[in-house]
Amino acid sequence: MESAFVAISSDFQVYGAVERDGDVIFDRVAGFDQVSEERSRYAPKEFLMKRNENVLILNVESKKAVFGIKSCDLKGFYLMDKQIFGKDPFYTQKREKTLFANFVCSEPCNGGFCSSFGGPVLDQYDLQILREGEKFHVMVSEKYDRYFREFKKETGTFYVDFSNRFNSKLEPLPVEGIEKRIKWNSELWKEYASACISCGACNFECPTCYCFDLYDDGNERKKEWDSCILSGFTSSSAGNIRKGLDERLRQRFYHKFVYFKKSKDTYLCTGCNRCVEDCPVGIDIKEVITYDYNGE
């Protein structure tokens, strides 16, 4: 692995998940063995869209490789692609020039529910690494195949078996059909609104949330991560379509489970649990999936 890492390092700026003061974040790394296997605190979507960037100038980006991203986060980026790839030049360029090496989890993480969306073995990836003891199983896309010519390719049902094993350890949630079960006037939204402090964490930490705000600052026009939990998100000169916090919380779940399903035929969530972990009042998207709307 180390040799492939070195080869990649000569073509890319290399980053990895690393532990600092007890939190796993992303940083420059110099060796494969420095990369943490733990799920990072956040989905590293800033590699694709900076929290804040000037959109008046489209700089040529350097090539970056990011090791140690988890499958749930990478899957999120593939979902974002469906909406914004090829349309937003900043995202598109970075997406094309960033190699993500996702580490496949062999044990379910605390709180995660990725098995509900297929589990940690992805069928779209740049470089998918599955560690078994000292051994690495590598799946690599054509684009990056040249770094792994020497590697023996896994054949047969290895990955499928692995995936089934993993998913049987983590009971999937009944997400199928949620777009039909979920209820517009559910009490849930009001209950959540009584607790939510509009911090935006559930959007900022999510690997699938792509929304941003555009604004001018001096001679720059900046694009900054936005959150649909905020009331200004939809205020327009005609009024505000989502005045209530309950309506805005509902928008988040409806986008993930209803709207995206309708327009792109997939849910906009990967089960990474980030929005649950970072919500200061413990609002849990899993409850939105499992809630008995009919029983209300």
């Binding site: 940083d27 956040y42 590293p44 800033e46 804040n52 930490e205």
Partner: peptide, 12 residues
Amino acid sequence: QTPGERVIGYSK
């Protein structure tokens, strides 16, 4: 060192 001015709360 990573792009984009990421901010998170310190979990510890």
